[in-house]
Design a protein around this nucleic acid. Structure first.
Length: 231
DNA sequence: GACCAGGCACATC
DNA sequence: GATGTGCATGGT
């Protein structure tokens, strides 16, 4: 019989989110996200990092940079096969080459190839448009909006759900949108705050609230939480 | 060698 | 609507 995680047992408050933010922020310091020199590089990174360690994305982006392919126009000129070869280190390279192509096609068909134009669109509409692009799901769309577009869309990822689930703020089966609302309804609408908060959660999730319990040194030590049993 | 990493689309029930 | 599966590299 599979063990179920405890249900959410308390409601998150603004004060909870504020406390957690301050703990993480003082523990880790400024994150300076998203790593990337230009909005386009951030978008490419958002697609390449899907289910992939960032260090592998760095290798792929370096290849694209060396090939002079880190602009919408330059990338559009390359064949999908060529792009796939360049981004090979980031894994799923055939799928991701197709996804980059989908985004580029969208950018040129809807926004004349201009990110500046694209980001002039009101963000709820732009979010819907991005979700319509094959290969862009909610996390990738929100990363593009928040980090490349500086729009107030909170980014949720696997770490967010796991960390906040462990601390009883979310049920085991919380959806993406439910998790996103938890933050957007309890935080001021503030792009730098959303930016930093998500980055801090990812940084925390890399070391703590892992499937295998380890809490020593966790900046959230002291907050009520559960840990999965050792197998 | 197993496990994991800043998901997503698609098939099937 | 829920659940399962394929996609693939590189570090630990």
């Amino acid at each position: 019989m599979r063990r179920r995680a405890p249900r959410r047992s308390r409601r998150v408050t603004r004060s909870d989110l504020d406390t957690i933010y301050r703990k993480l922020s003082s523990h880790f310091g400024p994150m300076n996200w998203w790593p990337g020199d230009t909005p386009f590089e951030m978008i490419v990174g958002a697609i390449l990092t899907q289910n992939t360690a960032w260090r592998n994305v760095v290798l792929a982006i370096r290849n694209l940079k060396e090939a002079g392919a880190l602009s919408p126009r330059a990338l559009r000129r390359l064949s999908e096969a060529k792009v796939a070869r360049l981004i090979r280190p980031s894994g799923y390279f055939r799928v991701k080459a197709r996804r980059l192509r989908s985004f580029i096609d969208f950018l040129f068909e809807r926004h004349q190839g201009s990110l500046a134009r694209m980001f002039r669109r009101p963000f709820p509409q732009l979010r819907e448009e991005l979700l319509g692009v094959s290969g862009i799901g909610p996390e990738t769309a929100d990363s593009i909006l928040l980090y490349a577009g500086k729009m107030p869309s909170f980014v949720v990822d696997a770490y967010t759900r796991r960390v906040f689930g462990r601390h009883y703020f979310l049920g085991e089966d919380a959806s993406y949108d439910e998790t996103k609302s938890l933050f957007e309804e309890n935080l001021p609408v503030d792009v730098p705050l959303y930016n930093e908060y998500h980055a801090l959660i990812v940084n925390l999730g890399k070391d703590f609230c892992r499937p295998r319990p380890r809490c020593e040194g966790c900046p959230l030590e002291g907050l009520p939480h559960w840990t999965p049993p050792r197998q």
